[in-house]
Amino acid sequence: MRILLVEDDPDLGPAIARALRSENCAVDLVADGIDAGHFGDTERYDAAILDLGLPGKDGVSILTAWRSAGRDMPVLILTARDGWPDKVAGFKAGADDFMTKPFRVEELMLRLRALVRRASGHAANRIECGPLTFDALSGQFELDGLPLKLTAFEWRVLSALMLAREAVIPRLELLERVYEGDADVDSNSLEVIVGRLRRKIGASLIETVRGRGYRLTAEHSACA
């Protein structure tokens, strides 16, 4: 998952980013409302974590602008404001979830994964594609019932393909989900990651669709 984290606290923002990265997420951290609006408008994210009280532009205004522009990524508001009017304003602006500070990182991660899973059209946490199984709540992959060990980059690519359910994901979109905004990306890096995944799960499960991108497909049974 690639996450946009909008948090102006100089200690809390980097701490949340480190926690998310430890769960294989790519994270773009911004601390200003103006920058947050720009990143959300121009980059592709699986979800956003948005504070309400921000310098430059407040969170509700940012979210309202995103929704008006057709930006449909799941947005979780994370704020110290716990009053009912703030929750109403957040949900009316288009928030998908609302958490108040202080919070547990474990709960934040569970909620994020649930938002991304539902946005991808999955009602159940357990997703299967041939011999491959993905628990969208825990983030764990299994191959033929055994835990699958993946690097962070491999996890990001495979989880994106798994959630897409046999749909083709363009190469550029996959790259955007794997790397953070300031990363120095080699032009062949995605092919290297896909090659490693094929060696781990079987070459036939990841199909290259020429001129379009990649998709995960089961050889003898459909993804579900």
Rank of each mutant, 00 (worst) to 15 (best):
L190F: 06
R198D: 02
E207I: 09
V178Q: 03
I206Q: 06
R199Y: 08
L190R: 10
V192R: 15
V185D: 00
A203G: 11
E191C: 06
L205M: 15
V192A: 13
D186P: 11
G211H: 04
E207H: 04
Y179G: 00
L175A: 11
A183T: 10
I193W: 07
A183V: 00
S189K: 14
A203T: 08
R210I: 07
K200D: 04
E207P: 05
L197C: 03
E176F: 07
T208R: 15
V185R: 09
V178T: 14
A203L: 09
E180I: 03
V178F: 05
E180L: 02
L197R: 05
V192D: 13
S187M: 09
L197K: 07
R196H: 12
R199K: 12
D182N: 15
I201S: 03
R196E: 15
L205I: 02
N188Y: 12
D184T: 11
R212L: 14
G202M: 02
D184A: 11
G211V: 08
S189T: 08
L205E: 00
V194C: 09
R177M: 12
V209N: 06
R196T: 12
L175G: 14
R177K: 15
I193S: 06
Y179C: 01
E191S: 13
V178W: 05
E207W: 03
N188C: 09
V192Q: 13
R199P: 01
R196N: 15
N188H: 14
A183K: 02
R196F: 04
R196I: 05
K200Q: 07
V209K: 09
D184M: 07
R210G: 10
S187W: 06
V209H: 03
S189N: 05
V178H: 04
S187D: 14
N188F: 12
S189A: 15
A203Q: 10
G195M: 09
V209G: 05
V194P: 07
R198Y: 01
I193D: 03
V192G: 09
V194Q: 06
S187I: 10
G181N: 11
T208F: 13
L175V: 15
R210F: 08
G211E: 08
V185E: 02
I193Q: 03
Y179K: 03
L190N: 05
S204M: 07
D182M: 09
E180M: 06
L174N: 09
S187T: 11
E176C: 10
R199C: 06
R199F: 06
I206C: 03
D184P: 05
R199V: 03
R199W: 06
E176W: 12
V194R: 10
R210E: 11
A183Y: 00
I206A: 09
R210K: 13
S204C: 08
V209E: 04
V194N: 05
G195A: 11
R177H: 13
L175W: 02
I206P: 02
D182Y: 07
R196S: 15
A183P: 00
V178L: 13
D186M: 09
L205Q: 11
L174P: 15
V194Y: 11
G202S: 00
K200A: 04
I206H: 04
E180K: 11
V185F: 01
G181R: 11
R177S: 11
G195W: 08
S204D: 14
I201K: 02
D186C: 08
V194L: 08
L190W: 03
N188M: 14
I201F: 07
V209Q: 06
V192S: 12
D182P: 01
R199T: 07
Y179W: 15
R177A: 10
R196D: 14
L190V: 04
S187Y: 04
